[in-house]
Amino acid sequence: MRQESISPFQFFSLFINNFIVISPALLANAVTETAKHDFWISLAVGYMLGFLILWALYEFSLRQTNLNAAPATIFGHVALVFYLLYLFVILLVTIRLFVLLIHTYHLPRTPEAVVSLIVLAVACYAAWYGLGSIARISILIFITTFSVLYFFPFPVLKDMSFVHLQPVFAQPVDMIGYGALQALASCLEVFFLYSLIPMVRFRHSGKRYRLLFWSVGLALAQNLFFFSLIFFTFGPFLTEKMVFPNIELFKYFRLGDSFERVEAVMIILWVNAITLRIATLIWLCKEEVGRLFHLRSKNVLLIPLSIIFTFLPFLVIRNISELLTIYHHAWMYIVPAGIVFYLLSRTHKELPSLKNGSDGAGQVKTGHEQHTGSPSQAHPEQEYPPFPP
């Protein structure tokens, strides 16, 4: 099967759009609840560690050659199963967050299953046409979001107060460290996009690391920008009591006395970005399931996956309290486990080894063949039928 390819800028836009849709909604109140005024210290430490780990994962992904290559061992297949479970958890949290936010703020009378079905139908439609289609849509969403998002916060600059930075190191070190772990897990959750690195077509090998710096650097800068707006506008004690601080910040925006409902525009941009994230995740789930079962035609998997994830999020995560508990406290264990299983599922080690007296097809040679070479070399006059594919 021919592997798809994307450009570095398409990967860059995919990374940014996947990075900024979850953590601004769920991380700000988690870290402020833990570290209070030392929120910025936890965030800085977590993001610096996250950048170093993402660099190491990027180095590993550059050495991979094919997204469609199945694991070579049973151990690799088992690791792939657990990595798939990680992707399923990420997809469940993303869908549940989308449904809760839309149902709470905009469509309270619409059943949650209907909202989930609509977003999955759109995401699966994009995934059906492949990663190239998702990547092209991602560029449009990124350009629109980047053009609009940085002009709306200016009206709240007059209400920001830097006094919230004091006192420094008022919280115990263990609480600041716990907040750093929360920020680190939020930073690393999008490592699954590194499985797409083999599909990126680099014109010059020297530009490969520019992709790392620009994608991760700008994504972290965007999050720091939004977290700064939330923290300096509401303060740590008000932020920790908000369920969705980013939505409350959007509602706080005003453009004079004539245009007050700015959050409608921001919600549209956020809905586009999170739908793209769901499309990317369900495409990856389809590809990984196909790798696990050695399937050639993988698009048929989109139908059962869409049906399962229409209802499964409501069975696993029943309300907003469970969603916040998972993201605030369990996420720092789920994400590292997903990274470990990702690395193990990508390890290609051929078995049995040639050093053990076996040929490339895994057939053990006889003693005469080991000394004289292959059967055709030992008896050149004898013809053997071709090995079946």
Rank of each mutant, 00 (worst) to 15 (best):
V243Y: 05
E322N: 14
A135G: 09
Y47T: 09
Q222F: 14
R296D: 09
T280S: 09
Q166A: 10
I274S: 07
L67V: 11
A279T: 05
P388N: 10
K355N: 15
M1K: 14
G50V: 11
H371T: 12
I230M: 15
M266F: 03
V119Q: 04
R201A: 06
L85D: 01
W270E: 05
I230T: 14
E383P: 07
L302D: 02
G130A: 12
R2Y: 00
S5Q: 06
L220H: 03
F259K: 09
A56Q: 02
A330G: 08
A361F: 15
Q166D: 14
F151P: 03
Q64Y: 09
M332T: 12
E288D: 08
Y150A: 01
W55N: 00
F142R: 04
V122W: 07
F192K: 01
C285I: 15
S147D: 07
A361H: 12
Y252A: 04
M48T: 07
N17E: 12
L351I: 13
K251P: 01
F244H: 04
L255I: 15
K241N: 12
E383C: 05
S23A: 01
R318P: 03
A126I: 01
P389D: 15
R136L: 06
L27F: 02
V93G: 00
V45M: 14
W55E: 01
